[in-house]
Structures are given as structure tokens and as C-alpha cells.
Nucleic acid binder design. Structure first.
Lengths: 197, 197
DNA sequence: ACCTGAACACCGTTCAAGT
DNA sequence: ACCTGAACACCGTTCAAGT
């Protein structure tokens, strides 16, 4: 075991906003948003809860803002997509996956907290369509249709699927929905009306 | 002033789930979800907070379930609509209005609580499209596209618009979005791909 | 500069007691 | 049957104090 000079006497890295945010996210993902408390977060970081306020002066509100930013900001990148429509499609699939992974954060995304969180994501969707020759008005509408659909569909999925085995939501005697297929088909339908000028 | 035999000695109607739910909703609409506490709810009902547990044995969880049911359940009705497409459109407009009126409840709608809350609404959307000759598979997808879009768009609107004068969200120097127009255009685009067999 | 410990005002909820 | 009052375990947060 090599000495780590960046590790202090208590054998733990110093507190930082990133470490705090990561620990908070892992509590939310593992136990749910309701179990995220400053005291529990302190325990996870091996620190007294009050130490967190030194890095986040606005307290829990600010912590939740960081969680929203961490989950909501996923810019669309052209990547190796074959055209703007495929790029939108890929973005939507990736964004949905992220929302479902961090579904405990979803309630925070439909709140007024951290209003700027979605702007860079929306802007990159717009840029993608502009580059593909989609008229500005159509692109603005399409960006909100797409982002709205992905957000809302994730909400429907969270409601309709158990988080852990044992939750068992769903009407008994009714076939469970194949949400992956449903999302894919819905995405095609929602994007069908978007066309270049 | 006529004597009201249904009013008891303390000059207030007896507690009931409906009265409790209404009072809770008016707190959420007026002050936000975070200010809904059992003690405040008791004050609004002129009762000790603990009296509420007699009507809602599962406590606050059950109260929130009722709020979700109250906001989420709005069946689509043919009404005087000119065909199923118009009926879907009217439903979406009405549902959006309700979500924005009770925007404090929105975080609860993207949670696993009260999983059955959206099923009757979804079922009536399906029935509407079936009656219009839309193939079953298309209708199922379309129902979730529509409901997902309305939910997600409401979330975007809540993020992007101040709840009360003084909140002032939005990037300064940028023209504010006309959300009514944006929703109408998005709705048309999202429903464009839905066609009868 | 960074963290701790005690304290304060508030929660949701339980339980025995009142009527 | 319906409501109250006191109590308990927990919150978020402030503040003075430690290093």
C-alpha cells in the first residue's frame, strides 16, 4: 500500500462539492430521495453533517440543485450518428437511460429548483436540428416535444415498473408492459412530424 | 342565519377524507408541497394534527396518494368533440391546465406512489382511439406519447415560468417563451403521426 | 480554512387518555 | 367513534468553539 499524501490523517480525501454530490446521488439511487438527509450524507462521507455546510452554504437546497444539474445536463453530440434524426434518437435513448438510473432525482426535475439545468441540453438539441436544415420554429417546438416526451415517459415508466424486486406494481392478471419497446415506438411517433424545410 | 345541524359544537363540519384532501391541496397550491405538514394541515382544518390519522391510518403517505389521485385522474370524454383526434386534443389541453394549476403535486406524479392513479386516464384515451378505428398497437403507443408529452411539457413549463411574480426564472435578455403557443404546436406535432388503420 | 458539538425549532408518528 | 396532549425519534440549520 503506497502512502497517499492527498489523504489526510483520518485516511479520507478532503470534502469537495463533487464528492458530496456523488455520495448524495448514491444514497438517492440506492435508498430513495426520502432517505437523503444531511446526517446520513455526513455518515457516508465520514464527516459530521455540519461540515457539509462549509462547502454548500445554501445547505440542502444547494445540494439538490447539484443533483438536478448532474442528472439533467446531457448535451446531444453528433458523434457517429447518421444525420440529425439519428442523433436525436440516440440522445433520447441515452437520456431516458440516465433518468431511469437516477429515478429518485426525477421529482426534483419537475420543480422550479435550478431553472437553468435544462437549457444547455435544450440548446444542443436545437443546434443539432439547425445543422440538419430544420426551420427554427419547427426545431424549437420539436426540442420541447422530444425533451417533454422523454421526461414524461420516464415518469410513466417509474410509476409502472417496480424499482426493486418485491415492489410489484401493476394490475395483476394484466400483461406487463415492455417499456423498452414502448419507448422506442413512442419516440418514432413523436419525431415523425419533424421535417426539414 | 339558519342552524346547521350538520355543524357540530365547534361550528365546523366533521372531518372527512374529502375535506382533508381539499385542505391539503389548497396548502400545496398556495404555499408549495414543502409547506404541507400534518400540523399545518391540522391548523387549516381547525383540528389537532393527530386527528387526521383517524381518517388516514397510513398517515402522510396516504394523504399524498389522495392528492395524486385527485390531480391525475381526468378521463377523456368524447363530449362535443368533432371526432377522436379533436377529443384527444381537448383532453390534452384540459389535463395540462390541471397539472399547471396543481403544479405542486407534479413531483408526486413522477413517483412510485399510488401506481394505479393514471390507469383510468390512460384507459379512456385508449377507448377514444379504438372508437375512431386506430389500430390497437398504434393506440397504446399514442396514449403514452400523449400522456408522456403532456406530463413532461408541464414539467418544462414549471421549470421555465415563475409561479408568483417575484420568482423571475429565465435567462435575462432572452425573450420569454409563449408556453401556451409552444404547447399547442407541440401537441399537433406529437399527434401528427397517429393515424387510423 | 475546515470541521465539530451542542442547541433550536420543527417534523411524522405512537399511544394513552379524554368525550 | 372521534379527537386531544404529551412524548419520541428524527429533521435542517445556527453558532460558538476547536484545530
Amino acid at each position: 500500500m503506497v502512502r497517499q499524501p492527498s489523504i489526510n490523517a483520518q485516511n479520507r480525501p478532503p470534502l469537495s462539492i463533487d464528492r458530496i454530490t456523488d455520495a448524495a446521488l448514491s444514497i438517492v439511487d440506492g435508498q430513495g430521495l426520502g432517505r437523503l438527509t444531511m446526517r446520513r450524507l455526513g455518515d457516508a462521507l465520514e464527516v459530521e453533517a455540519m461540515a457539509i455546510y462549509h462547502h454548500l452554504p445554501r445547505g440542502k437546497e444547494q445540494l439538490l440543485d447539484h443533483l438536478v444539474a448532474h442528472v439533467a445536463v446531457l448535451p446531444a453530440s453528433e458523434g457517429d450518428a447518421t444525420g440529425w434524426r439519428d442523433a436525436l434518437h440516440r440522445w433520447a435513448v441515452a437520456y431516458r437511460a440516465r433518468l431511469l438510473t437516477h429515478q429518485g432525482v426525477l421529482p426534483l426535475l419537475v420543480t422550479r429548483r435550478n431553472p437553468a439545468a435544462l437549457t444547455t441540453t435544450t440548446a444542443s438539441l436545437l443546434e443539432l436540428m439547425r445543422g440538419g436544415g430544420v426551420p427554427e420554429d419547427t426545431a424549437r417546438v420539436a426540442a420541447h416535444v422530444l425533451l417533454g416526451f422523454v421526461l414524461g415517459h420516464a415518469a410513466l415508466e417509474v410509476r409502472g415498473t417496480p424499482a426493486f424486486p418485491g415492489d410489484s406494481v401493476g394490475t395483476p392478471g394484466e400483461a406487463p408492459i415492455d417499456w423498452d419497446a414502448r419507448f422506442a415506438a413512442g419516440l418514432d411517433q413523436a419525431l415523425a412530424g419533424v421535417n426539414p424545410g
